[in-house]
Amino acid sequence: MTPTPSGRLSRTPDGCDLVLERTFRAPVEDVWASVTEPESTARWFGAWEGDAAPGRTVRAQMAFEEGAPWFDLRIDACEPPHRLAVSTVDEHGSWRMELLVTAAGDGSVLRLVQHLASDAGIGDIGPGWEYYLDQLVASRVDGPLPVFTDYHPGQKAYYEALAGR
């Protein structure tokens, strides 16, 4: 099964923003807990440890990647329960992201925004975030976790088309 990709790409003065959303039948505070509390993030992304506060760096784990690597993650802004902005630097470059949670009817919308300097690699980045966000959805209902090969390379062409490739 190949899930349907949903991301959008918009140009910005500094590059582009990749935006993906998921809707939940849960209050904002509940969704916020799923993306900020270490025992919750461990279920869909990976654990994290450290003193989480704006301007500080925590250690986070990508538990569903080969080798389950740990990395440093800087908290650039934290405005509970609506906005978390983080950044990291690794061998693939700089990563700046925001998680935005808003009320929507009797539920909430989670918007992941990755601020990119260019659209290079979008064919790999987009499917990865689709996978992780669907992991979040599944973990919240104790459902079966998705399989990465259902996302990549199947969604690569969709994301490359967003970039005009």
Rank of each mutant, 00 (worst) to 15 (best):
20 L>F: 02
20 L>P: 00
20 L>M: 10
20 L>E: 09
21 E>N: 02
23 T>W: 09
23 T>E: 15
23 T>R: 15
25 R>P: 01
26 A>V: 10
26 A>Q: 10
26 A>D: 04
26 A>E: 06
26 A>C: 09
28 V>Q: 13
29 E>R: 09
29 E>T: 04
30 D>P: 02
30 D>N: 12
31 V>F: 05
32 W>P: 00
34 S>A: 14
35 V>M: 07
35 V>P: 02
36 T>V: 06
37 E>W: 03
37 E>R: 15
37 E>D: 12
38 P>W: 09
38 P>Q: 13
39 E>A: 14
39 E>Y: 11
39 E>K: 14
40 S>D: 12
40 S>C: 13
40 S>T: 06
41 T>D: 01
42 A>G: 09
42 A>M: 11
42 A>T: 08
43 R>E: 05
43 R>I: 10
43 R>A: 12
44 W>S: 06
44 W>I: 04
45 F>H: 05
45 F>K: 03
45 F>E: 04
46 G>V: 07
46 G>W: 04
46 G>N: 12
48 W>V: 00
48 W>Q: 14
49 E>Y: 05
49 E>K: 14
49 E>T: 15
50 G>R: 07
52 A>P: 00
52 A>N: 01
53 A>F: 01
53 A>D: 06
53 A>Q: 09
54 P>R: 09
55 G>I: 00
55 G>W: 00
58 V>P: 01
59 R>N: 09
59 R>A: 11
59 R>W: 03
59 R>S: 13
61 Q>R: 15
61 Q>C: 15
63 A>H: 12
64 F>N: 03
64 F>K: 05
65 E>I: 00
65 E>L: 07
65 E>M: 10
65 E>R: 12
65 E>K: 08
65 E>P: 00
66 E>Y: 01
66 E>L: 08
66 E>R: 11
66 E>N: 06
66 E>A: 14
67 G>Q: 06
67 G>P: 03
68 A>E: 08
69 P>L: 02
69 P>E: 09
70 W>N: 07
70 W>K: 10
71 F>V: 12
73 L>S: 01
73 L>D: 01
73 L>G: 01
74 R>S: 08
74 R>P: 00
76 D>R: 10
76 D>L: 04
76 D>K: 04
77 A>T: 14
77 A>E: 15
77 A>S: 10
77 A>C: 08
78 C>A: 14
79 E>P: 00
79 E>T: 13
79 E>W: 01
80 P>I: 09
80 P>Q: 12
81 P>H: 07
82 H>A: 12
83 R>A: 07
83 R>I: 13
83 R>L: 15
83 R>S: 07
83 R>H: 11
84 L>W: 12
84 L>N: 11
84 L>F: 03
85 A>N: 10
85 A>M: 11
86 V>Y: 08
86 V>P: 01
86 V>G: 03
87 S>T: 11
87 S>I: 13
88 T>N: 10
89 V>S: 14
89 V>D: 14
90 D>Q: 11
91 E>A: 12
91 E>G: 09
91 E>T: 08
92 H>P: 01
92 H>T: 09
